[in-house]
Design a protein around this nucleic acid. Structure first.
Length: 550
RNA sequence: UGGGGUGUAGCCAAGCGGUAAGGCUUCGGACUCUGAAUCCGACAUGCACUGGUUCGAUCCCGGUCACCCCAGCCA
């Protein structure tokens, strides 16, 4: 695995060296309200790998301080995804586990005169906050006595007030140029059932108040988050200090990772699912972990991608080919290689005995012979890829089949195309060819060089298959689509299904199996496969230096 | 327009005062029972721009420009 190296690691090294910390502890804090995607994978991998570098620990902490959208089904999915990536948290905690302790800290702040109960409505709060360029003004309730605040907060907790009627706010500075410091709300009233706490609470702490406390309770040393929280760091530090936290965690930010032409925001992902633009969160075109998995991405390919991509404080958009590269790197020595025909054209070997079928032993992976061999059938009737045949060779660079020229059928014989049969519209429906027994695979035949090597499948034994050829969801970014909503920019032609054949050997394949279908690229068996027909998702293509025009 | 963050090649990204790592992409060439893979080779006199300090600046200082984030009782 690639060695991890980035500015956060340097910070950790220095903190350790300078004695600022004596251990490293990180946490991955998802809110259980969405499926994890590749962006989360980066956070997970960084949190775990960075801690691992120093023999530290990493907690999984569900940030469930807002009962509105959160649910247990996401908890299980997140734990499962983490396991898939190969990580076992040292602890699994819930932010809601700390509600009692968090409440006590809020009381402490009230007692210190640093928090107050506010009666302003939501609209009024917004108005009082001021704008980016104008300072806010103090709430008329800002100077209530400690006793009154204590009583009111207690009453909030007891459910005496309706949602939105009151809030608990930190008393900081309504004129701060940093809007996050203008008396942020610490607690809001929400008469909602919590997925773990039930109806025990009707006040819930806000992220800004809860998060630093949770980090402290757990002894987190380096609290890593994305760059948009940069503005919240002063507040994070303020709460840690004013709440007199024994352990002092620190927040560090990094830039978000985007992939070209895909959408990562949970809101948009949800729209794609709910609008039936995709078949679900595990649609192979989705950037979710379950989607990538179904498409054929492996945990190690994702890890390598993340580790090689690195990180900085810049929000970056990596080209999707980078992802493909690491998948291919991961698969090339381990995925069995097999022949397929996705757009079949019948070839009849006229000089091959009718009714005879012979079998060849083909290596599963020419570069890794340890993977063993499989049987390839050969007979008088075969299918080749339609694009691998042309009547008249366009130029000397054409490396496929053409009339009067010879190619090697991979793992079997040389064949020479002799004539074609066309239908009434002039389309080629059959190619007649001859084979040369001398050129049998394994004979080390060197007397002639073939024009090239192409794939084939034996007609009577091949199994039907469907190939989902698609791009990950593409969101056009052109001049014409500028300003359109993301859903209107969605390229709906991004899923092409081809119906063809695979070698019958793949009959015993299981959903999730990986193959390289030679020049067609890497594929993964889909769960939609049936006994009659296998379904494959293209995971990534190979590079091709073939240009049809040269 | 207040505050904060960030600008190193087509895309990521190291570098933190001593003369621009690495990966991906791209382009040549060799090899090939995959037009793949592999192997060789090429690819920033330049670090947003501009002044200054210095023997020396991508690194330090000043100015300018561009992009991103912040006005939820979301996280």
């Amino acid at each position: 695995m690639a060695e991890i190296s980035n500015f956060i690691k340097t910070i950790m090294e220095n903190d350790l060296k300078e004695g600022k910390v004596d251990h490293i502890a990180t946490r991955f804090p998802p809110e259980p309200n969405a499926y994890l995607h590749i962006g989360h994978a980066r956070a997970i991998i960084m949190d775990f790998e960075l801690a691992k570098c120093f023999g530290g620990k990493t907690n999984l902490r569900f940030d469930d301080t807002n009962p509105v959208n959160e649910g247990a089904e996401y908890v299980d999915a997140i734990i499962e995804n983490l396991g898939w990536l190969g990580y076992t948290p040292d602890n699994v905690f819930f932010g809601s586990d700390y509600f009692e302790k968090t409440y006590e800290k809020a009381v402490l702040l009230i007692k210190k005169g640093l928090a107050y109960v506010d009666d302003l409505s939501q609209e009024e709060t917004t108005a009082y906050r001021g704008t980016l360029t104008e300072p806010g003004k103090d709430s008329p309730y800002r100077n209530r006595s400690v006793e009154e605040n204590l009583r009111l907060f207690e009453e909030m907790k007891e459910g005496k007030y309706a949602d939105g009627e009151k809030t608990l706010r930190a008393k900081i500075d309504m004129a701060s140029p940093n809007i996050n410091m203008r008396d942020p709300v610490m607690y809001r009233i929400l008469h909602r059932e919590h997925h773990r706490q039930g109806n025990k609470w009707c006040i819930y702490p806000m992220y800004d108040f809860a998060h630093p406390l949770q980090d402290s309770f757990e002894g987190i040393t380096h609290s890593l988050c994305s760059i948009e929280y940069d503005n919240h760091r002063p507040l994070y530090d303020w709460f840690v200090e004013k709440c007199e936290m024994e352990h002092v965690p620190h927040q560090y930010e990094w830039g978000r990772l985007n992939i070209t032409n895909t959408i990562m925001s949970k809101r948009y992902l949800r729209q794609l699912v709910e609008g039936n633009y995709v078949t679900g969160y595990d649609d192979p075109r989705m950037p979710t972990l379950v989607g990538l998995r179904r498409r054929g991405f492996t945990p190690s390919s994702i890890k390598e991608f993340i580790l090689y991509t690195g990180l900085s404080r810049i929000n970056s958009t990596t080209n999707a080919v980078n992802l493909d590269h690491f998948l291919m790197e991961d698969q090339k020595m381990s995925a069995p290689r097999a022949m397929t025909v996705m757009d079949p054209l019948k070839v009849i070997i006229d000089n091959y005995p009718e009714g005879q079928v012979e079998y060849f032993d083909a290596p599963n992976n020419m570069e890794n012979l340890e993977l063993g061999t499989h049987k390839i059938a050969f007979s008088r009737e075969l299918y080749i890829e339609r694009e691998d045949f042309i009547e008249v060779k366009p130029n000397k660079k054409w490396k496929r089949l053409a009339l009067d020229s010879e190619v090697r059928l991979m793992n079997s014989y040389f064949i020479k195309a002799e004539s074609v049969v066309k239908d009434e519209n002039g389309n080629i429906i059959e190619v007649h060819a001859s084979y040369d027994p001398e050129t049998r695979s394994g004979n080390n035949f060197t007397a002639r060089k073939p024009n090239g090597t192409i794939q084939f499948v034996e007609a009577s034994t091949a199994k039907k298959a469907k190939f989902n050829l698609f791009e990950p969801l593409i969101f056009d970014e052109t001049e014409e689509t500028k300003g359109l909503s993301f859903i209107d920019r969605l390229n709906k032609e991004s899923w092409i299904v081809k119906e063809g054949y695979v070698e019958f050997d793949l009959e015993n394949t299981v959903p999730g199996d990986h193959y390289q279908f030679m020049r067609n690229g890497y594929y993964c068996t889909d769960k939609d496969s049936t006994k009659e027909e296998l379904v494959f998702n293209r995971t990534c293509s190979l590079k091709s230096s073939f240009k049809p025009n040269n």
